[in-house]
Design a protein around this nucleic acid. Structure first.
Length: 481
DNA sequence: GTCGAGTCGAAATCTTGCCA
DNA sequence: TGGCAAGATTTCGACTCGAC
């Protein structure tokens, strides 16, 4: 093995790594329980570890199975509401014959300071329910979707949607509306959680007034996004709003975009427009159609929730309406689904034969002492150390490929030292320095490597930084100055 | 008087933005 | 930095109004 001045090393194969790019970790694991009864619009009684907890139910959303959580009320919902005693009867029936539903609950973060008059009345929140006996979960917390998506986008997990995580700003006012994300002041990204049934003339699960409110809101938002799109194009000297000519005139990097992301916290099949919706005259459908003509892109994002966190399962452009998909979307086809992308590429028999079972040995220059085994162990130790320090394993692996793990020992040691220095710097900073806000890009931990920053959640999960809010609550005011 | 349809506010919680 | 307002999420009960 030894050649005197250099030693041959077998490169350490990449470790099986979780992907933080596509993963949002909860601060603490969710607890499993059984929904016992619906107490009110926002409250559920949940049996957790033999104890009945009053939990906040953020939203059952427009999920097709939302009736599940209302099963106790379902039989009385359609009963006549008029007449003496009928309302009382209905109230008495609440919770009767309620079908127990497995659920996941989170505990309230008590480090968050709230106004005295806004203290939470419930100490737990129902985050997900299960329809298959706790085998898989369906997230129902719509409020958290923006946080999950903010994490994924800012971690660079969806480069086809957001190329520059630094240029992403949440909750921006566009015209009269608030849009969930604006990218580089140019692209608008709106998140929605609804089934395609909403495109019908009379949306499923909605009463007339309710549907009208929803219709007004979404058509208004689509209108604002399209207006913004036109303004951005006009700012680039393009008076023609036709998407084809615009595409031809603008470089891809400078082409303003408007994207509607339909987000699901379960393995939702590809969204399709229901039959007859196109010709139905539905106002939402008309708004969708007009927006698409102006260049609006539809994307479907599926997430999977489990007790420890949320995984970005897949995302893909959807051609909801008739017509050919936009050219630059079509180019992305076939590589969007992460499930597919993350699968090891299938090798042909010829390729298998050509690939040796053991990777070719590499030469580590400048290593003269110790045997090959010692150096290999050192390399493993350094890799492990690097992984622990950075907790960026998948980020590095996915973003920069396996070459990151085939660095020689000297380079690895330098990386570790730089990372440790940066971590110490970060830990010495005040919470105010570390975080700007919950969704904005936090500490540039990766600056030492000249790479994209991580989201606040990724840093929290990696244990590299403490929660600024928690520290704020613990530390005296003067200590923060 | 009864009934159905439509309207509206309250419910719990979070986030952002504005102002002092 | 703290306080407050506004806006967002969806469901439900109370109320109004017109028709029969």
């Amino acid at each position: 093995m030894s050649n005197g001045t250099c030693q041959e090393l077998v490169p350490v194969p990449p470790l099986p790594l979780p992907p933080p790019l596509f993963r949002y970790e909860f601060r603490e694991p969710l607890r499993e329980g059984i929904v016992q009864q619906r107490k009110g619009r926002f409250t559920l009684e949940v049996l957790v570890d033999g104890e009945v907890l009053l939990c906040h139910c953020p939203s059952t959303a427009l999920h097709p199975n939302r009736d599940l959580l209302n099963s106790g009320k379902a039989r009385t919902l359609h009963a006549p509401k008029r007449g003496p005693g009928k309302v009382a009867t209905e109230t008495q029936n609440l919770g009767a014959a309620y079908q127990p539903v497995p659920c996941l609950v989170s505990r309230v973060d008590n480090t968050v300071k709230r106004h005295a008059d806004r203290q939470r009345q419930t100490q737990h929140t129902v985050e997900a329910i299960s329809l298959d006996g706790s085998q898989s979960w369906i997230g129902i917390n719509q409020v958290m979707v923006a946080r999950y998506m903010g994490h994924f986008l800012q971690a660079g997990g969806m480069p086809e949607i957001c190329r520059d995580p630094l240029g992403l700003k949440p909750e921006q006012k566009v015209g009269k509306c608030r849009i969930d994300f604006v990218h580089q002041g140019r692209d608008t990204i709106e998140l929605k959680m609804f089934p395609p049934q909403i495109l019908r003339p009379v949306p499923r699960n909605m009463k007339g007034y309710e549907a009208r409110k929803f219709t007004e809101r979404i058509t208004s938002q689509l209108h604002c996004m399209v207006e913004h799109l036109h303004e951005q194009r006009a700012a680039r000297g393009l008076l023609d709003t036709g998407t084809k000519r615009v595409r031809q005139q603008l470089p891809e990097d400078d082409n303003p975009r408007a994207m509607l992301l339909m987000c699901y916290q379960n393995n939702e099949p590809p969204v399709k427009v229901p039959k007859g919706a196109l010709a139905s005259g539905s106002p939402v459908m008309a708004a969708f159609s007009a927006a698409r003509k102006a260049g609006l892109e539809f994307w479907q994002v599926n997430m999977q929730i489990d007790p420890r966190g949320v995984t970005l399962a897949s995302y893909a452009p959807r051609n909801l309406l008739k017509g050919r998909p936009k050219a630059h979307i079509a180019k992305l086809r076939g590589r969007i689904y992460l499930e597919e992308a993350m699968q090891a590429p299938k090798k042909s028999r010829r390729a298998k034969e050509a690939t040796p079972a053991v990777p070719a040995p590499v030469v580590v220059p400048g290593v003269e002492e110790g045997g090959a085994l010692a150096e290999e162990l050192r390399a493993v130790q350094l890799q492990k150390q690097l992984r622990e320090v950075l907790s960026l394993q998948a980020w590095l692996h996915l973003k920069y490929g396996p070459e990151m793990w085939q660095d020689d020992a000297t380079t690895l040691a330098a990386r570790v030292a730089a990372a440790e220095r940066r971590v110490q710097e970060v830990r010495g900073q005040s919470p105010q320095q570390r975080f700007t806000s919950s969704l904005k890009v936090p500490v540039m931990l990766a600056e030492g490597f000249g790479r994209a920053p991580l989201s606040r959640n990724a840093l929290l999960c990696a244990g590299l930084v403490a929660d600024g809010r928690a520290q704020k609550a613990k530390q005296p005011h003067s200590a923060l100055r």
